[in-house]
Every structure is written in C-alpha cells, then in structure tokens.
C-alpha cells in the first residue's frame, strides 16, 4: 500500500494563493495581476498586503497578459491570475507574441483547469491548455498535484527566468505531499516503487493513480507511480529509468489525450524506448456540468479507470 495520507483536503488554488503571499513577503520584485477573479484565484491576501504591487485589470485578459509583459521592465516578476481557459485559449496570441516570443519573464497562473471545476460546465472546463502552452517555444508547463506542491511550485517559478504556465484547480483534493518539499522544475517524483507498470500522472489524477496503485497491489500488480508535475521540460531520465524496468506505461491526466502529458510521454518513448502505453485522458470531447467526482467517473479519469488501463497494458 502506498505510504501517503491525506493531511486534510484542500484546493490547489489555495496553494497558489499561499505561495503568492509568501513570495510577496520574500521577493519585492514579485507583482501580480488579476482579471476580476481575485477571490477565485485566492489572490486576495496578496492584494490586501501589497496593494501597490497588485494590478486589477478588470475583465480584460488580453490586456492583462500584455501588461504583464510590460511590467517585467526593471526586473519585476509578474504573476497573472485567471481561469485556465481565459489564461490560454482566450489570450493565446498575446502570450505567443508579447510573452513567449518576446522572452518576457511572466508567470501565467491558471485556476479551474480541467473538468473538476464542476458545475460551470464546458465553457469553463478547458482540457486543451497544456497542449496550447507546451507548443510555445521556451514555455515551461507545470501541473502540480495538491495544495502543498502547488504552493511549492508557485514559489519555485519565481526563481526561474522565463515564461511559465502553472495550472491548478478548484476542488478540494487530498493534500498528501510533504509541506516542506521544495519544487524542482523538470524533476518528476517517484511516489511508489514497482516493477510491473509505470503510471505517469499529474494534477488531480496523481491521487487517483495512488489509489489505483493500492487496488493493483491487492491483486499482486506492483505499480510505479510517478508524478510528472512538470510536463515541459519532461523528465526523460526518470521516465526511461522506470519504463526500462517495467516495460509498460499508463498515463493519467485531466486533459485531452491530444496535447497532454500522455502525448509528451508517448513521443518520448516512441523516440527512445518504444513500449506499450495506455492513456487515461479525455478523448476528443468537451466536458459538461456535474460534480467533480461524477465528471471524473463519466469521462473515465478516476482510479477505477486507471486500474482498467493498467490491466489493458499488462495484456499487450
């Protein structure tokens, strides 16, 4: 059985808010922008404590991204906050030209990613954002798994020189990683050791993967669960070491199959270590209204679906 326990479920967006507040206190260069979602992004504490360094742009995401690019003048490190859909698809050209191509040190922080924002439905449930962002040259893409890791990742990206997309979510999910673990960009974390199958997961599905590993363990299947919080750059070394041992892979993510973590892992394995792979992801579909748990089940993203994918890949 995996050794992780939920120290009390929390939303990953609150991890972002806590990390941003800590950055505000520790790094005077950190500034923040928000497009009328301060409460939803948990940026209110930063805004209250550092009003001069907080820029409320109103409902104007394109302007917010451009303004963040300009705010880098003089060594400032701007963090933008809005929902994942409005952080990527709505402002893709602004990110592409004013941030990525211009090489500006902007941190694009996106909440309510994936299906699990729940009842708001498909207009707000972006499942393409990781693909959009990872295609941009020079963009670092991170999807941490719980409150503690999101807080640590928020703090870590301030030290990284270059544009970053940081993705997190709305629902309360198990908080199980250590509260004092530093986040290393580009380093995957091996959560359980196993020789039979490698499960590569990120975001909210890391906990589902751990639950799946428990169920598999009961059936005598030893899964190696790896948290790929950084999608780009991908930790090729950890991936090849694990798959070299297990010979088969399941990927799990709250994203479209096209363009997500599974897509990056399949590409890497195809080039370096061709291996049977199954992907737990949304398959060319929009989401819909529902509770987070209902949606993970309906769209095939919960622990039971990860178990089923492992069994498929074991039979190949």
């Amino acid at each position: 059985m995996h050794p992780y326990t939920d120290s009390g479920s929390k939303d990953t967006r609150s991890g972002f808010g806590a990390g941003l507040l800590e950055l505000g206190q520790s790094n005077p260069n950190v500034v923040a922008l928000c497009a009328d979602l301060t409460g939803s992004l948990k940026m209110d504490a930063f805004a209250a404590e550092f009003p001069d360094r907080f820029f409320q742009t109103g409902i104007a995401e394109a302007h917010m991204i451009g303004m963040a690019a300009g705010l880098t003048i003089g060594g400032k490190i701007p963090f933008t906050g809005t929902f994942a859909n409005f952080s990527t698809g709505r402002v893709y050209d602004q990110i592409r030209q004013s941030v990525a191509y211009s090489g500006k040190n902007v941190k694009i922080c996106a909440s309510h990613a994936g299906l699990t924002l729940g009842e708001d439905g498909a207009t707000h449930q972006i499942l393409e954002d990781i693909g959009l962002m990872k295609m941009l040259p020079g963009m670092t893409v991170i999807s941490p798994c719980d409150y503690n890791q999101t807080k640590a990742a928020t703090i870590a990206i301030a030290e990284h020189d270059g544009p970053v997309y940081l993705r997190f979510g709305r629902p309360k999910v198990p908080n199980f990683t250590p509260s004092n673990a530093p986040f290393v960009i580009g380093k995957a974390d091996i959560l359980t050791q196993g020789n039979d199958v490698t499960i590569c997961a990120n975001g909210h599905l890391v906990w589902e993967a751990l639950e799946a590993a428990n169920a598999l363990e009961a059936e005598g299947i030893h899964a190696e669960v790896i948290n790929f919080a950084t999608i780009k750059p991908l930790d090729l070394e950890s991936l090849l070491a694990s798959v070299g041992k297990t010979g088969r892979v399941v990927t799990a993510e709250e994203h479209q199959r096209h363009g997500g973590l599974g897509d990056s892992i399949a590409q890497a394995l195809g080039m370096h270590l061709p291996s049977p792979i199954e992907m737990v992801a949304v398959n060319d579909s929009f989401g819909e209204s529902g509770t987070p748990a209902q949606l993970l089940t309906k769209y095939g993203l919960d622990a039971a679906n990860i178990v089923a994918a492992v069994k498929r890949v074991m039979n190949r």
Partner: peptide, 17 residues
C-alpha cells in the same frame, strides 16, 4: 493591438520604482 497593453505595464513598472 498588443503594444498599448505592454506600454501600460511598463508605465506602471516605472511608477512602482
């Protein structure tokens, strides 16, 4: 259409420092 936003950000950065 993007340069005005960038300039606004730079102008705010100048005020900040």
């Amino acid at each position: 259409g993007q340069g005005l936003s960038v300039a606004v950000g730079a102008a705010q950065a100048k005020k900040l420092v």
